[in-house]
Amino acid sequence: MDATFWQTAILEPLRRFVDQALTFLLNNLLAMLVVLSAGVLVAYAVGFLTRLVLRAVRFDAFCERLGVTTALRAAGIARAPSVATARLARWLVAFVFLMFALAALNVTPMTDMISRLFLLLPQVIAALVILLIGYLVSAFLHRATLLAAVNAGVPRARLMASTAQALVLLFSVAVALEQVGIGRNIVLATFSIAFGSVGLAAALAFGYASRDLARTVLERQLAPADRTDLGEISHL
């Protein structure tokens, strides 16, 4: 093997590779790093501003009223809702910039994947909002049902309230999945069957197995409120 062979077979390709690698590093990778750095800065700024705005509008008190703070604590999130939301906003912005940074590398398969992800992003965000609203409504309904049932002296008030909450959550999950287009027909069929079954089972159980209970409940509903239960007491 002479020197020309080394030159053409080994060194020349190696030099081209190094040139391309340097070009890539200097152009695409540098661009990615710039986008990523900007992303970190913007993410922190968005997080900071979100926190400021949420504090100004007393978001924590609002969440406490709706029971969101309690639910977050139950889920192991001890931070105030305003802090948690600000962090979520920060990470969301950071994620978007990460996608931009990866796109800046200009690697074709990755760019395609990111494009698809961005096309799906609005639906994902809409689904998350639907889930959040569904959760808030279900928590409110749970407490309202629980209070009404306890004050009416209904046994198993918690079961009643949890059932109401579960149905609303189930509904919001179904709508959220529908939004992102996951198993559209399956979700619809499952939801219809589940709702229908619960209704039918409740009707059968109430009608056949609990006739006496049904009569008692109806009598209670139709009887003058409170007076028969608590005596002749005049509260005012």
Partner: peptide, 25 residues
């Protein structure tokens, strides 16, 4: 005035059993 004390106590106890998370708020 007749008062059904037993019923009132039952409803208070049910409240304590079911509403404690709400009372804590």
């Amino acid at each position: 005035v007749n008062v059904n004390v037993e019923r009132m106590v039952t409803m208070f106890r049910q409240g304590a059993a079911d509403l404690m998370p709400v009372w804590r708020q």
